[in-house]
Amino acid sequence: MPQREIAGTMIDFDDEGFMTDHTQWNEDIARALAREEGIEELTDRHMAVINFMRKEFEEKGAGPSIRRLTKESGVPTKELYQLFPKGPAKKAARIAGIKKPQGCV
């Protein structure tokens, strides 16, 4: 799926549905992508995770490991799995508009 209209903007995606250009992202797009993932409403806690992932991605070129994410975003493991059920790492990365996580932990 190369290009798709999300929240009124044409967005580039890779074959697995991750945005290929994180600078095209905004919060409306995040909300639309979240709904595709079955998350009806993005709360402040979702946004804490998403913003931390974006910050890490901008600084390091890759999303954080789950361990760093829970330690540094202030969202503990249990809550992270409640916020993004059925696979937090991939789901949060997709909503955050960054590439698919590459790490194993």
Partner: peptide, 17 residues
């Protein structure tokens, strides 16, 4: 590689369900 020590890892897996 951000692989935690055993005690932290077990707790992490437990907290993840």
């Amino acid at each position: 590689l951000d692989i935690p020590p055993v005690d932290e890892f077990i707790e992490m897996i437990h907290d993840s369900g």
